Amino acid sequence: MRRFYILGFFFLMMFDTLGQISFKLSATAALPLEASLGWLYRIFSQHFVYFAILGYVGAFFTWMTLLRRAPVGPAFAASHLEVVTVMIASVLIFGETISLAHFAGALFIVAGIVCLAFAERDVIKKENEKS
Rank of each mutant, 00 (worst) to 15 (best):
K125P: 01
Y50A: 06
L92Q: 11
R42C: 00
V83L: 15
T65L: 10
G112R: 02
V86P: 02
T65S: 15
A35N: 02
L33R: 02
L54G: 14
A77E: 04
K125H: 13
A104L: 15
E82S: 15
V83H: 04
S90R: 14
A119S: 10
T62M: 13
V114N: 02
F51D: 01
L54T: 14
R121N: 14
F60P: 03
L100W: 10
A35P: 00
M13A: 14
T62V: 14
C115V: 13
E120V: 00
F23Q: 12
F108T: 14
V83P: 01
V114C: 03
Y41W: 09
I98Y: 02
T17M: 09
Y50P: 06
T62D: 07
A59S: 14
A101S: 13
F94M: 05
F61A: 06
A35C: 00
I113G: 05
L67C: 09
A30G: 04
W39F: 15
A75Q: 08
V91G: 11
M64I: 14
V123P: 01
G19R: 04
G38M: 00
M87G: 14
R68V: 09
L100G: 12
I124R: 13
F23K: 09
F15E: 01
G112N: 04
R69V: 07
F15Q: 05
G73W: 02
A104Q: 12
L40E: 01
M64P: 03
L67S: 10
K24H: 09
L100S: 13
F48Q: 11
R68W: 05
Y56Q: 05
T17F: 03
I21V: 13
L107T: 10
V110A: 13
S36F: 00
I93Y: 11
F48W: 15
A70C: 10
L92F: 10
A104T: 14
V84T: 12
P32E: 01
D122G: 09
Y56P: 02
M87I: 09
D16P: 03
M14R: 05
E82T: 15
L107Q: 10
D16W: 11
F118N: 12
I21P: 03
T65I: 13
W39K: 00
G112P: 01
L100H: 12
F94A: 05
I98R: 06
I21M: 06
A30M: 01
G112M: 01
L116T: 05
S22Q: 11
W39I: 02
V110E: 07
A70F: 04
H102R: 13
F118L: 15
F61H: 04
